[in-house]
Design a protein around this nucleic acid. Structure first.
Length: 568
RNA sequence: CGGGGCGUAGCGCAGCCCGGUAGCGCGCCUGCUUUGGGAGCAGGAUGUCGGAGGUUCAAAUCCUCUCGCCCCGACCA
C-alpha cells in the first residue's frame, strides 16, 4: 500500500491521554483511536495487526481440532438466569432491554450460549467430543478501563468451549488447547509463560493463564528459577515453614505504642523486625466476621481466604465497625481476647513464638504473645501471597517474581455449566451423562498491545514479523526520477512475490519518513537514496537491531524472501 | 465507589492564583528555496475556552451544578 493513499494518522507528540507504552505508541502510530473510555476504533494499520493475530489463532485452533462458529453479541437474560450469572456477574455485565422490555446483555463470555446450543443439538456420545470457537467482540463494563487496548471494555476475544464424554477426554482437550496456545503465542513472537491460575468468575476445577512477561503487566507471577513451577501469585501455594521458633515462651506483656498503627510504625517504634509481628486483619465474609493472622512482612491472599471459607465475597471490615468489635481504634486489633470472631492463621504464624500483636486497646500492643497460650486459632492454613525467596511448592527451587499481561486463559470447567443448564447426552450404555466442559480464551486485541509492550524502543514499535502490519516499509528519499522509478519497480516486485510492503511515496523530508517508519515499526525498512543509488545500492534496515546493510537492488527480493521465511 | 489530576485551534500546551484585546509550538493552506533523521523564509486560515446556571458593567479566569477523560486504589476470565 502507498502511504499517500492510506489512512495512517501518526502523531508527532505523545497524546496527553496515554501514559502506558502500548497505549501511547498505538495512538501515535495511527493504529487506534478512542471513542469512549475503554472503547476504540481500530484504524487500517491496527486492524491489519489484529487480522494477523486472528489468522494465527485460527490456524492453530483448526489444527487442534476446534471448529469455528459465531455466536451473537447480544444474549437473552434467561440463559444467564439459568446459571445464576445474571445476578452473580455484577455490574461488569452490560444489560439492556429490548423494545418489548425483555432483558438482554452484551456477552462478556459465552458459556451460556454455547451450552444452550449443545443441549439443543447434541444427543449422543457419538457426536462428541466437540470443541467450538469464535473470534468476536466482547463487552465487559470494567470498573476502570485503562492502558488503551490492555483493559478495554469492548475488545476482541477468541473463545473456545469443549464438550467431552468424560474426564479423560476433557483433559485431552485441555492439553490440546494448552499446546495450541503455546504455539500461538510463540508464533506471535511473544516472550510468555503459562502459569497456574485461579478460576475466578468462570469457575471450574483448574486453569492456566498465559502471561506475556512485561514490566507494565497488571498480574504478578511467581516461578521457580531452576524448576518448572510457575503460577499467578493469586494462586501460588505456600508451603508451611519446615522449622518453627522453639524459644521458651516469655510472659505476655502489654506495651504502650502511642499512635503506632501500621506494621512499619509499630516495628520501628519497638525496634523489631516485621517478622516478629503478627498482623490481624478483620474481614466480613458473608454474615460472619473473621480475623486473619499473617506475619508482619507477609500479605494476605484474599482468594485463599475465600476458598477456605467457601464464600464468594470477602471484604475488609469497614473501619467504623472495627472499634465495636475490638474495643480499640483501627490499628490496634489483635487476636488476644477477640470474641465472636473466627480466627484463621497463616502457616508462618504457627511457626512463630514471642511475637507482637495489637492489644485491642488504644495505643497498646502486646509483646511476647504466643498462640494457644494467649489466644486460640481456629484453623491454620496457607493464607498469604507467595513472594520472591519462598520455597517453590514443588520443592524445585526458590521462587522469583515477575510482572505479566494475561493474554490467554484455559479452564477445566467440569460440569459447572452443563449441570446448571442440563446439558446431557446418552452414553454407550444409554445412560444420561453431563457433558464435561472446558473453556479457553485469548485476548486478541490485548495480545497486540502486549506485543507492543514487549517490542518497542524510544522511536516506536518493533513488530515481530508474523503480526507486523507490513513486512517492509519502502522509503525513497527523493522525488527524483531514478529513485522513484526504482521504488516503483521494487514495490510491484515485492507485492508480486507476496511481500507486504508499505511504500512511503509522500514528498516528505527524509527525517519525517524515517521517524514515521520507526514509529510504525515494520521489521524491515528499505531505503532508496540518491547517494546509494549512484553506487548501485539500496539500504536494508532491521528495525529490531537497528543494523543496516547495503545491497544491490536486484538482491532485494531474494534477501527479503529468505528473511521473511526464516522469521515466520 | 474513594483519592488525585485534567478539559483552551487538528495535536501538545500557556493564560486562571490577582476578572478587562484568547496566546505559543507543531500541524494545515499559498508561494519561493531546500531535500539522508521531524527544513528555512514570507504570507494565511482555524476557537460554542467541555456543558448549564450564577455573581459582575465585564467571566477562559470567581461560585454552583453537570458531563467527559487520565492516574492511584477498591474491583476484575
Amino acid at each position: 500500500m502507498r502511504v499517500s493513499e492510506t489512512f495512517i494518522p501518526t502523531l508527532r507528540e505523545d497524546p496527553g491521554e496515554a501514559e502506558t507504552v502500548s497505549h501511547r505508541l498505538m495512538l501515535r502510530a495511527g493504529l487506534i483511536r478512542k471513542v469512549a473510555a475503554g472503547i476504540y476504533t481500530y484504524l487500517p494499520l491496527g486492524l491489519r495487526v489484529l487480522r494477523k493475530i486472528e489468522r494465527i489463532v485460527r490456524e492453530e485452533m483448526n489444527r487442534a481440532g476446534a471448529q469455528e462458529l459465531l455466536m451473537p453479541v447480544a444474549s437473552p437474560a434467561e440463559l444467564w438466569r439459568e446459571t445464576g450469572r445474571w445476578d452473580f456477574y455484577g455490574k461488569e455485565l452490560l444489560r439492556f432491554k429490548d423494545r418489548h422490555e425483555r432483558d438482554f446483555c452484551l456477552g462478556p463470555t459465552h458459556e451460556e450460549v454455547i451450552t444452550d446450543l449443545f443441549r439443543r443439538e447434541v444427543r449422543s456420545y457419538r457426536q462428541m467430543p466437540l470443541n467450538f470457537y469464535q473470534i468476536q467482540t466482547k463487552f465487559r463494563d470494567e470498573i476502570r478501563p485503562r492502558f488503551g487496548l490492555m483493559r478495554g471494555r469492548e475488545f476482541i476475544m477468541k473463545d473456545a468451549y469443549s464438550f467431552d464424554r468424560d474426564e479423560a477426554g476433557a483433559r485431552l482437550n485441555y492439553q490440546k488447547m494448552y499446546d495450541a496456545y503455546n504455539r500461538i503465542f510463540t508464533r506471535c513472537g511473544l516472550t510468555f509463560r503459562p502459569v497456574e491460575a485461579d478460576t475466578g468468575l468462570i469457575g471450574g476445577t483448574s486453569s492456566h493463564e498465559f502471561m506475556v512477561l512485561a514490566e507494565t503487566g497488571e498480574e504478578t507471577i511467581v516461578y521457580s528459577e531452576d524448576g518448572t513451577y510457575a503460577a499467578n501469585v493469586e494462586r501460588a501455594e505456600v508451603l508451611p515453614p519446615e522449622t518453627s521458633d522453639q524459644a521458651a515462651h516469655r510472659p505476655l506483656t502489654p506495651v504502650s505504642t502511642p499512635g503506632r498503627r501500621s506494621v512499619e510504625e509499630v516495628t520501628t517504634f519497638l525496634k523489631i523486625e516485621p517478622q516478629h509481628l503478627v498482623k490481624t486483619l478483620l474481614y466480613s465474609a458473608g454474615k460472619e466476621t473473621v480475623a486473619v493472622l499473617v506475619r508482619g512482612d507477609h500479605d494476605v491472599n484474599e482468594i485463599k481466604v475465600k476458598r477456605l471459607l467457601g464464600v464468594p465475597e470477602l471484604e475488609l471490615l469497614k473501619p467504623e465497625l472495627v472499634p465495636g468489635l475490638t474495643g480499640a481504634p483501627v490499628g490496634f486489633a489483635g487476636p488476644v481476647g477477640l470474641k465472636q470472631v473466627r480466627i484463621l492463621g497463616d502457616w508462618a504464624v504457627k511457626a512463630m513464638a514471642n511475637f507482637v500483636v495489637g492489644a485491642n486497646q488504644a495505643d497498646t500492643h502486646f509483646v511476647d504473645a504466643n498462640w494457644e497460650r494467649d489466644f486460640n486459632v481456629d484453623q491454620f492454613a496457607d493464607l498469604r501471597n507467595a513472594r520472591a525467596g519462598d520455597c517453590s511448592p514443588r520443592k524445585d527451587g526458590t521462587l522469583k517474581t515477575a510482572k505479566g499481561i494475561e493474554v490467554g486463559h484455559v479452564f477445566m470447567l467440569g460440569t459447572k455449566y452443563s449441570q446448571a443448564m442440563k446439558a446431557t447426552f446418552l452414553d454407550a450404555q444409554g445412560q444420561e451423562q453431563l457433558a464435561i466442559m472446558g473453556c479457553y480464551g485469548i485476548g486478541v486485541s490485548r495480545t497486540a498491545a502486549a506485543s507492543v509492550e514487549q517490542n518497542h524502543d524510544a522511536k516506536g514499535i518493533k513488530w515481530p514479523v508474523p503480526i507486523a502490519p507490513f513486512h517492509v516499509t519502502l522509503l525513497p528519499l527523493s522525488q527524483s526520477q531514478p529513485v522513484t522509478q526504482l521504488a516503483d519497480s521494487l514495490y510491484h516486485a515485492m507485492q508480486d512475490s507476496g511481500i507486504e510492503v508499505l511504500w512511503d511515496d509522500r514528498d516528505e523530508r527524509a527525517g519525517v519518513k524515517f521517524n514515521d517508519a520507526d514509529l510504525i515499526g515494520a521489521p524491515y525498512h528499505l531505503v532508496i537514496g540518491e547517494k546509494g543509488l549512484a553506487q548501485g545500492q539500496v539500504e536494508l534496515k532491521f528495525r529490531h537491531t537497528g543494523v543496516t546493510q547495503k545491497i544491490a537492488p536486484d538482491q532485494v527480493l531474494s534477501l527479503l524472501g529468505s528473511l521473511l521465511k526464516a522469521a515466520s
